[in-house]
């Protein structure tokens, strides 16, 4: 056990986990976070708090994670390399850990151009692989510069993987790097192309990566065909099979169809060998989470048997 977080304990006990995702408010209103926590508490095992996603300013991921804790949810703090250099990243991680945040997802971050401050300077001091390495060094009791840390520290480290972007072999090389750098779990981009995911997953199993890291497959409920087309055309690195677009176009009630599609993809992912959990990304539609989890037959959520607290530094 590295961190003793609820997510880590559940995964190590062999449970199939469910994660959610919420975006912090575009303002200083913490009540929004508490309200959104209602949709996730008791329905998912942990919730990602995004870090200025698509480069749009929101409440900081670390502070929102602390509010999510207060709201009764287990947070996964996302951290990007776009906005902070290695000093700021490590200091924010220390603060979040002290406040009880035990999971972190290390990302490179969307480019400034896509957000509401396209004129900003990007930092990109570390890349996501190096950020995983930095947190893993902190787990081993030192900062990324090599200097020793004065107090015990342990976070459950996550990374992202994109099964749908080309070239796939390069993606697998990079996944291997993330694992060797110290990642414990991997969350993927949303699955909207099952044959491609199948192909990627079998390559992952061939490399033996599914034995070294917990893979959580992403899903995304969509409300309209417009949202799906936006994903297909405007978000690079996302692949959407035409079948889903046709289904959404011809649906009488697109919302119902979106839920049905999401549940169907989840049920498929649950039986893929090597997939250890689901990561639901209900972008701006957090309220649908309880229904999706229930319809996929993933309720009630299990309680970890092992206790948290001080863990030994044992690798996944």
């Amino acid at each position: 056990m590295v961190s003793g977080s609820r997510l880590e304990r559940l995964l190590r006990e062999g449970h199939f986990v469910v994660c959610g995702e919420m975006s912090p408010p575009q303002g200083a209103d913490k009540e929004t976070i508490f309200r959104k926590c209602e949709y996730f508490r008791n329905y998912v095992d942990a919730v990602n708090l995004t870090d200025n996603q698509t480069a749009i300013v929101r409440m900081s991921s670390a502070m929102s994670s602390v509010f999510a804790l207060a709201g009764g949810c287990e947070p996964i703090m996302q951290m990007t390399c776009r906005d902070r250099n290695r000093l700021a990243q490590q200091s924010e991680i220390l603060g979040a850990y002290a406040a009880g945040v035990l999971n972190i997802l290390c990302l490179t971050g969307d480019y400034m151009k896509f957000g509401n401050h396209p004129d900003a300077k990007g930092c990109f001091d570390l890349d996501s692989v190096q950020l995983i390495y930095a947190v893993s060094e902190m787990n081993a009791g030192r900062f990324v510069c090599g200097e020793e840390m004065k107090s015990p520290f342990g976070m459950f480290i996550g990374g992202a993987a994109n099964p749908f972007a080309e070239p796939m072999k390069m993606r697998l090389i990079r996944l291997g790097k993330k694992i060797r750098a110290g990642a414990h779990f991997i969350q993927t981009q949303p699955v909207f192309d099952i044959p491609r995911f199948e192909k990627w997953m079998s390559a992952v199993r061939d490399e033996g990566y599914d034995q070294q890291v917990f893979i959580l497959a992403g899903v995304m409920p969509v409300r309209s065909v417009k949202a799906l087309l936006y994903m297909k055309n405007e978000v690079p690195g996302v692949r959407i099979a035409d079948e889903y677009i046709k289904r959404m176009e011809s649906a009488k009630d697109p919302k119902e169809e979106g839920v049905a599609m999401c549940v169907e993809i989840m049920k498929y992912l649950m039986q893929v060998p090597g997939v250890r959990g689901i990561h639901i990304m209900p972008v701006m539609w957090e309220s649908i989470t309880p229904r999706i989890v229930e319809e996929a037959g993933l309720l009630p959520r299990p309680e970890p048997k092992t206790s948290g607290g001080e863990g030994s530094d044992e690798q996944a």
């Binding site: 890349d127 972007a165 390069m170 690079p236 690195g237 692949r239």
Partner: peptide, 14 residues
């Protein structure tokens, strides 16, 4: 643009 030294980010187009 992101000075990636350890491989591509997730945004490579098709």
């Amino acid at each position: 643009p992101k000075e990636m030294r350890n491989g591509p980010c997730g945004g490579t187009r098709e």
